[in-house]
């Protein structure tokens, strides 16, 4: 039923420049991760939350641009969103237990 929604040329709709920018962004976030690890936030929870936040942004960049979700049909974006939300709930409920132990 669904036909391919894009051509190979569309895959690179933003040109290679966008990949370079995303790559540079990933490098910057990696630097922030390393720097943040050296900062004493007086809370293990905060340190972990910050590291997870940066990792999530990097993951989103990779998925959105390098894995071409940006150019995909809305259905695929929704399906990926379901997976991501489920993953967040799994992690969230597990951490919820640890936080109240």
């Amino acid at each position: 039923m669904h036909q391919p929604t894009h051509t190979h040329a569309d895959d690179h709709a933003g040109g290679y420049g966008i990949y370079l920018k995303v790559w540079l962004g990933l490098i910057v976030f990696t630097g922030i991760t390393v720097a943040a690890a050296g900062v004493d936030l007086n809370s293990a929870g905060l340190t972990i939350a910050l590291a997870l936040l940066i990792a999530s942004v990097k993951t989103a960049l990779v998925v959105y641009f390098f894995m071409h979700i940006k150019y995909e049909h809305l259905l695929f974006k929704l399906m990926l969103a379901v997976c991501a939300i489920t993953f967040v709930i799994f992690i969230g409920l597990t951490f919820f237990d640890i936080a109240y132990r």
């Binding site: 709930i89 409920l93 919820f96 237990d97 640890i98 936080a99 109240y100």
Partner: peptide, 17 residues
Amino acid sequence: SLVWGHHMFTSGQSYTA
């Protein structure tokens, strides 16, 4: 998919959970 903790009521899981 959100009820797995009910297997762990006596295992040391937090009371709030």
